[in-house]
Simulated scan of single mutants.
Amino acid sequence: MHSGASADKIHIKGPDHKGTFEDYQQIYNEIAELLESNSDYDDGSYGPILLRLAWHASGTYDIETKTGGSNGATMRFAPESDHGANAGLKTARDLLEPVKQKHPWISYSDLWILGGICAIQEMLGPIIPFRPGRSDRDASACAPDERLPNASKGARHLRDIFYRMGFDDREIVALSGAHALGRCHTDSSGYSGPWTFSPTVLTNDYYKLLLDEKWQWKKWNGPAEYEDKKTKSLMMLPTDFELIKDKEFRKHVERYAKDESVFMNEFRDAVLKLFELGVPFKQEERYTFKRTTD
């Protein structure tokens, strides 16, 4: 691990400080410590919700109007913070707030993305390069509602949402692999349950389960979702099922189910692209951070 300035020196760096690699690695390590020390949350980690924060901050980008995206951290403000797709994410923002207070020089925009990268890596996903340079914006820059995927919709909706950001079918399926992590909550999305049996470890199980398990509609009072027939403990959203109903999507599901390394590499590239959409970077260099478990 690279060791930069001591924590005490970092603590007094003001908002005009230009972060070094060592500074960002220090913040990465502090976020990883938060994940490790709060093992009583959900399935044992805040990792999935930190990834969801970074994803939802980035996934509002519109390639035509050049609006939305991770640059700005506008989810700090209403109306974006109140969008239905962002329900429950105050938990993730609040978790990172003490890190921001300790390191006032880092933008919320960069911090949220660094949190998402840390979450992926600490949950045994691929190493995701990080490039700093996002700046925070005010409420006037809030992204409009309905730019994020609606889980109740079909393949056409998925393509409309992701093509708007500049992704293709392969990248849509790769990014959907994030559903290997975490679970749905009735008080956030209305849906309930995890997609996989190991929701705090990134694997290709999401794709394998989609193809191999027998799924049925869940009988309950909530929104339409699937459950596995065998254990009735896993769930899939209507949009998840579109990935095996649509022949173009399905061929990528099959590729990822067959070879986890192919999934990890293509997931890494798609996430890197997602996290950098629309950001006016001033530096070319990207940093890669060591996992705290390495």
Rank of each mutant, 00 (worst) to 15 (best):
Q121G: 11
D138P: 06
L158N: 13
F162S: 04
A141W: 15
A87E: 10
C142Q: 15
A143C: 12
I117Q: 00
L96G: 00
I117A: 00
R159D: 00
A92F: 07
E30G: 02
G166D: 12
P149F: 02
R137W: 14
L53F: 06
L124T: 15
G125I: 14
L148D: 04
E80V: 01
Q121N: 11
H83Y: 14
P98N: 00
P129S: 10
A151M: 11
Y108F: 09
I49C: 03
L51D: 06
G125W: 14
I127G: 12
A155T: 09
N86V: 13
P132Q: 11
K66V: 11
A92I: 07
Y46L: 08
T74Y: 02
S140R: 02
Y108P: 02
L35D: 01
L95H: 00
P132Y: 07
T60L: 10
P79A: 09
S58L: 10
S152R: 11
M123K: 03
G116T: 01
P126H: 11
S39W: 08
K66Y: 08
P48K: 05
E80M: 02
H103E: 01
S70N: 15
R147L: 13
G154E: 07
R134A: 15
N150M: 10
S135Y: 13
G68L: 07
I161K: 02
Y46H: 06
H56C: 09
Q121E: 15
S70A: 15
G133H: 02
D42N: 12
G88H: 01
W55A: 10
P104L: 15
Y163T: 15
R76C: 06
R164F: 07
G88Q: 06
R147K: 15
G116Q: 01
H157G: 07
G116L: 05
H103Q: 08
P79Y: 04
P79N: 05
G59T: 01
C118M: 07
A92P: 02
Y163R: 13
L124W: 09
I106A: 08
G115M: 12
Y61S: 05
